[in-house]
Design a protein around this nucleic acid. Structure first.
Length: 696
DNA sequence: ACTGCCTGCCC
DNA sequence: ATTCTGC
DNA sequence: GCAGAATGGGCAGGCAGT
């Protein structure tokens, strides 16, 4: 690193054009040339070739796909590495668009340009656009968060950490912090322009850096990138590092744009009469393929060599590679379910409170376990791996099971709370040192003995599941299920589920629209939890006593608040949770405005809270908000009802969200500590064996 | 060796 | 996880 | 209804500082 700096040779003209609209922008040579030159804003580089103006090139990306000509947008020679500035500028264009169609077209034009010039770089552009550095199951992580980026920015721009933090609070985005500080740097030394390959390479280096002084090393690598970054590059480098693009572009749109780009890149061109249907077909194919084969390297190389229509042949489900798990949509009650599944046969299953596990059993006898987010969890569950031989029938030679892994007390034959499961070690676990036993509750099968089952109806899949595996008490069980369309029966089943420490129900069609739809929240699966239902579940009246500055689209208002219950005995407010969801934008504005008048310079002496919380502002106790939660938990940081349940620890809320403001209540009428304690004890989950049946 | 902060990942 | 919002 | 972007509690594990 050290002496390299901003590439003014390349970008001065671009800035001139952007900053001062009246004046014609300067012209420039191609990048190869520019990087050999010593910078001088007025100078016309001496050697060779095509001149271009970056703004003109980039503005090509805004053209409708039909009118877009990749060669007009390209400003590097075919075969040369794609400059990162292409992507950064495209992201900047996308940031100014709100419609998904427009965003998709811009990205599609980027992909087409790369395909037409340097197809070898398409994979890198796709990775960066998707804001990934490797397939999820490979477990490659940057290990960089806001704190590290703040330090790196401070180092790069010669500022104090505190100054960066201040700007972060004001601007609500570290990318914008980078942007605003970059422009003050005008160092006149040559620099190598960033390429997409280089950026992705550095990101992967950051991921690999570990061990002693690795934080410094990572920050050094970030600095190397920032030093080479010009124009809007620092902003988007930082956003990529944060894994928060905040421009309305994410994976689904990348997949669509990629599919579209392949259609437009076909030779000979697709006749315009067919374009529309081919675009829809292509995006559908790419999305579908990605959901069963989430490896961009394979997809992109298959696309480039055989085209989008052959993608499904070349690139399909593989044992050992995680499939996107099917998800469910929230519903507010049994009647909504009957409504949605009117004339369709459906089944209800317990929704277990554990973690999703997709278990792959390969023909060679090896096992892989993947999380809901496609992380490889095999090393965390050696006990599950070990039990495969006990729960699979001998005829089974390969499978993929969809399950929930739940902490389980084998003595009492009872499900244990989620918090117990999360206490398990995660890396390099060996059978002998396991402290928390688990039971697998299986509810679906996606693959069996060489046969893919995704396209089969649930009725068929479930038969195969029941036939091919055997329950082993406390180790492997089938999810409890009933098939009924009777409202009361389902209601009762839901109550049973709750009584047996489950979260609620999952409801699924059996015959129609009952294929396995990877990674989609389809209407086929619904979830029903008590706390989704109006006037059911735990709701509390709590007092906002502090807040945190909002980020991104919440810049300028508070993004989250610290809530407290009231302890009448000690006349103090005890923190119980933070809250940041459930607010409409208008409501958040209102509450932020209202509470800004209640800001105090230090927390009240009668506030009890974890000292690691560190809110940005404290408030006078002034308002009462009704908040809903799924559960109450023993908290390591919050202080609510401290001493009531646990001598030292307080209670907190799981999944807190705002319901409404209680204009009718004063802060001292908030839910009190005793009530919080009672609510905690009332949870079925705490009845650890000695209480069989309560009420009705 | 202990502790606290940070990050990623479960929900 | 939950929730809201623009398209 | 999709896709994206705000935000929650809480845990283990890695690293830095003492």
């Amino acid at each position: 690193m050290s002496t390299r700096t901003i590439n003014d040779v390349l970008m001065a003209g671009a800035r001139a054009a952007k900053d001062k609209k009246g004046r014609p922008p300067l012209k420039h040579t191609a990048i190869e040339n520019a990087k050999k030159e010593v910078a001088s804003k007025e100078q016309e580089p001496s050697v060779e070739t095509e001149e271009f103006n970056l703004d003109d090139k980039i503005s090509e990306l805004l053209k409708k796909a039909i009118d877009f000509k990749p060669e007009r947008a390209a400003f590097w020679k075919s075969g040369e590495r794609v400059p990162f500035i292409l992507l950064a500028r495209a992201l900047d264009l996308i940031a100014n668009e709100s419609g998904r169609i427009a965003i998709t077209e811009i990205l599609c034009n980027v992909f087409r340009t790369v395909i037409a010039t340097t197809p070898d770089d398409l994979i890198h552009v796709v990775y960066l656009a998707a804001n990934k550095i490797a397939p999820a199951h490979e477990g490659v992580e940057l290990g960089i968060g806001d704190a590290s980026i703040i330090k790196a920015l401070a180092l790069s721009y010669g500022m104090k950490d505190e100054t960066v933090k201040k700007q972060f609070n004001k601007l609500g985005d570290l990318g914008l912090v980078a942007k605003s500080n970059r422009s003050t740097q005008r160092l006149m030394v040559k620099v190598t322009p960033l390429t997409v390959v280089k950026v992705l390479e550095k990101f992967r280096i950051i991921a690999k850096q570990s061990g002693k002084r690795s934080q410094d090393a990572k920050q050094g690598t970030i600095q190397e990138l920032l030093v080479c970054a010009t124009d809007c590059e620092p902003q988007y480098l930082v956003r990529l590092l944060q894994t928060k693009m905040r421009i309305g572009l994410a994976e689904q749109t990348v997949l669509v744009a990629l599919g579209h780009a392949m259609v437009y890149s076909e030779v000979p061109p697709v006749p315009s009469s067919q374009i529309q249907s081919r675009l829809e077909e292509a995006s559908k194919i790419v999305k579908q393929v990605y959901s069963v084969a989430p490896i961009y390297d394979k997809i992109v190389s298959a696309l480039l060599s055989a085209g989008v229509r052959k993608l499904s042949d070349t690139c399909c489900f593989t044992l050992g590679v995680p499939v996107g798990p099917m998800l469910a949509k929230p519903t507010k009650g049994v009647s909504e379910i009957l409504d949605k599944f009117q004339d369709t046969e459906f089944t209800c299953e317990y929704k277990y409170d554990g973690e999703r596990a997709q278990i792959h059993y390969l023909d060679n006898g090896s096992v892989e376990i993947y999380s809901r987010n496609a992380e490889r969890n095999t090393g965390k569950f050696p006990d599950v791996v070990d039990s495969v031989s006990r729960f699979k029938k001998p005829s089974v030679t390969s499978f993929v099971l969809d399950c929930e892994v739940v902490a389980y007390d084998r003595q009492k034959q009872k499900i244990l709370p989620f918090q117990v499961l999360s206490g398990r070690a995660r890396k390099g676990v060996t059978l002998s040192e396991i402290k928390v036993s688990v039971c697998i509750f299986s509810f679906d099968i996606l693959y069996l003995n060489g046969r893919q089952l995704l396209q089969e109806q649930l009725k068929v899949r479930r038969e195969l599941l029941y036939d091919s595996f055997q329950e082993v008490e406390g180790e492997f069980q089938f999810a409890t299920a009933i098939t009924s369309d009777d409202l009361e029966e389902i209601q009762k089943f839901l109550d049973n589920a709750i009584n047996q420490s489950c979260e609620g129900l999952i409801i699924k069609t059996l015959d129609r629209d009952a294929t396995y739809e990877p990674a989609k929240r389809s209407n086929n699966w619904l979830k029903l939890k008590k706390d989704y239902m109006d006037s059911v579940g735990d709701s509390l009246d709590l007092v906002p006593i502090a807040a945190f500055h909002g980020r991104g689209k919440r810049t300028g208002v508070y993004g989250a608040f610290l809530l407290a219950c009231y302890d009448e005995h000690n006349e103090e407010y005890q923190s119980i949770c933070k809250i940041g969801t459930g607010f409409s934008e208008a409501m958040l504005e209102e509450r932020s405005a209202s509470l800004r008048d209640k800001v105090i310079s230090a927390p009240k002496s009668y506030y009890r809270y974890g000292d690691t919380l560190n809110p940005d502002v404290w408030f006078e106790p002034a308002e009462v908000w009704e908040v809903k939660a799924a559960d109450l938990s023993i908290s390591p940081v919050h202080r609510a009802a401290s001493g009531v349940i646990d001598p030292n620890k307080g209670i907190s809320l799981r999944f807190p969200r705002l319901l409404r403001v209680r204009e009718d209540k004063n802060p001292d009428q908030a839910t009190c500590s005793e009530q919080v304690g009672e609510m905690y004890l009332a949870q079925k989950i705490n009845h650890s064996g000695n209480q069989d049946e309560d009420e009705d």
